[in-house]
Design a protein around this nucleic acid. Structure first.
Length: 566
RNA sequence: UGGGGGAUCGUUCAAUGGUAGGACAAACGACUCUGACUCGUUUUAUCUAGGUUCGAAUCCUAGUCCCCCAACCA
């Protein structure tokens, strides 16, 4: 066995292997690098979403596994789109996801002076020039996918003139768009990124961090690789659409006196069914009021998921399960939902709540009497203990748990049928009370006093167990049910993403009734409403007026049977 | 039609010349004081056509299809 580096020993085996981890491992073994430095480089022009979570888990995870470090670096080179609010939100969300950059917080804007000096370096080397062409003209002269570009009249300016003009650009002598600095590479290149890409543009705009110190800003291509080099990033990981930029990334690293030679590796971005993971689209939804904000529980943003009650562990587990590859794909939403349920099933205490109440009166239960019953908080975790629930003559059950004319395979409550009320008694439906319009408004039942706790002494079985709340002490609440924001797995595939918006993505239930202990659920805590799903208090809750979000429903085999025409 | 990538169960990720495997989904069954959870069983895949080889998802050749690129966005 060859001596292993500490970094290799640190690579834990419990993590899934993928081509990037293999590459890092190989780089370590070949001593191309001696330690691992990665970075997560968000642009602060919006909130982080699930797609970013994949990148965050990759970059921070890799660093942890190989004993390296991961930087958080804001790619803040476009003050027109970037805001402090987004910087703050991004930090909050990365932390929430469970990662810590420690002291390694950086900004591309920290390097503006160095980048500027390097731009002058390129000019002196005859590898960059100031172009006065208007945008339209430059676009026209760049050629097309099949035709080469043409040189602008300014391409052969002398070094001194270029230097002078570039310095004047910096000094603020020209308006936006008047001139740009371009690299001099190859106007006939098949790769459009090499047709003399723009390195600097004039932007008279205040930057969240540098204020008005600058009026010229480097483009992504000029800032990113050099920032990686300054930070001595060993593995610069990005998504597939930057693949074409790699030759430019390498060209700049090669022609500049940078302190390190980082390498870019691309992986496929995450796509999720019935979801949009594009900051541009998400920004539109916020601006057009299609959602209530970046943290709307229907949004695939980390802030939205957090508000909805999705645990960070579930997001990490999901990312682990989807793997890492170079092939474009659309991950099944069910995989994400499974990760959420899997996590919540372990961590959530059980409670009872009735979403759509139907009154149930127990005729042979003494008027005014209240019984105290014991209910376990978690069936698989005795340490979670139990609580007391009160039971009386009048209770509420779920409307969906009653059918006057039971469908095939429906084995809940119907006239004459006996069911169990969880933790309480067996009850039998004796009579159905309707209003003038024929709507069922109340069930009159009898109970078996000997079945206290839920089982009859004679051992007879019932087919269903129902959740319920006691009319005497139930607390009213608003409950918000969420569906997907889109009504097709590939929103926008026909060109108009707004046409695919699901108009029923939010259902608000105002008459829900909760067992009293639910008044004490703290924010951030997710509980299971038995037989229904996982719910958490929303930040819209007010004293005496709780609002709960449904994080996700339980798997519902009965609903499937019904949908199948049962 | 230029350049760069990619094609493996329904979905997604493995298998790196040697038995095509896992997860999710689906179906069926067991269990059940949650039609949940859990457990068991089952179905289904190497883009096509040639070639190399004892042996090919993997290597070669030729096709087909899909994605990205013509911002002074990232």
């Amino acid at each position: 066995m060859p001596a292993e580096t500490p970094a290799l020993e640190a690579a834990a085996s419990e993590t899934n292997r993928d081509f990037i981890r293999d590459l890092v491992q190989a780089d370590l073994e070949s001593r191309r690098v001696t330690s691992v430095v990665t970075r997560f480089p968000p642009e602060p022009n919006g909130y982080l979403h699930l797609g970013h979570a994949k990148s965050i888990c990759l970059n921070f995870g890799l660093a942890t596994e190989f004993g390296g470090i991961c930087h958080l670096r804001f790619d803040d080179t476009n003050p027109v789109k970037e805001e402090q609010e987004f910087i703050d939100a991004i930090k909050r969300d990365v932390h929430w996801l469970g990662f810590d950059w420690g002291e390694h917080l950086y900004h591309a804007s920290d390097y503006f002076e160095q980048l500027y000096q390097w731009a002058e370096h390129l000019i002196r080397a005859g590898l960059a020039y100031v172009d006065d062409s208007p945008v339209d003209e430059m676009r026209a002269m760049r050629g097309t996918l099949t035709e080469p570009g043409r040189a602008s009249a300014y391409r052969d300016r002398g070094v001194e003139e270029n230097l002078d003009l570039f310095r004047r650009m910096r000094a603020g002598e020209y308006p936006n768009g008047a001139r740009v600095l371009r690299a001099k590479i190859d106007l006939a290149a098949g790769n459009m990124n090499l047709r003399d890409p723009v390195l600097y543009r004039i932007l008279h705009a205040a930057h969240p961090r540098t204020g008005t110190a600058w009026c010229i800003y480097p483009t992504y291509d000029f800032a990113h690789g050099q920032s990686d080099a300054i930070e001595k990033v060993t593995h610069s990981l990005c998504t597939l659409e930057f693949e074409d930029h790699r030759p430019l990334y390498d060209w700049l690293i090669e022609h500049l006196p940078v302190p390190a030679r980082p390498r870019q590796t691309e992986f496929a971005r995450l796509n999720l069914g019935y979801t949009v993971l594009s900051k541009r689209n998400l920004t539109d939804f916020v601006k057009r009021g299609i959602v209530t904000g970046w943290d709307d529980p229907r949004m695939p943003t980390l802030a939205g998921l957090r508000r909805r009650g999705v645990p960070a562990e579930a997001v990490r587990e999901f990312v682990r399960r989807i793997g890492m590859a170079r092939a474009n794909s659309i991950v099944d939403l069910a995989l994400f939902e499974h990760a959420i349920r899997d996590r919540l099933n372990q961590s959530s205490q059980r409670r009872m709540a009735v979403l759509r109440p139907l009154k149930l009166t127990i005729e042979n239960f003494p008027e005014g009497e209240v019984q105290e019953l014991s209910a376990v908080n978690h069936p698989d975790d005795p340490a979670a203990g139990s609580r007391t629930v009160r039971f009386g003559r009048e209770i509420y059950v779920e409307r969906d748990d009653f059918m006057e004319v039971p469908a095939k395979k429906f084995y809940r409550l119907s006239p004459g049928r006996e069911v169990r009320l969880r933790y309480a008694f067996l009850v039998t439906c004796r009579e159905v009370v309707k209003d003038a319009d024929g709507n069922v408004v109340e069930l009159r039942c009898t109970y078996d006093p000997a079945s206290r706790g839920g089982n009859a002494p004679d051992g007879r079985k019932v087919q269903a167990t129902l959740h319920w709340v006691c009319a005497a002490d139930a607390i009213p609440a608003e409950v918000r049910l969420y569906g997907t924001l889109f009504n097709r797995p590939d929103p926008g595939a026909d060109g108009d993403i707004f046409a695919d918006i699901n108009p029923e993505s939010l259902e608000v239930l105002r008459g829900a009734l909760l067992e009293p202990s639910l008044a004490d659920v703290s924010s951030g805590e997710v509980v299971q409403f038995e037989r229904q799903g996982y719910f958490c208090p929303d930040l819209d809750s007010r004293p005496g007026a709780p609002v709960f979000n449904r994080t996700i429903g339980l798997r519902d085999t009965w609903a499937k049977v019904q949908a199948g025409g049962g």
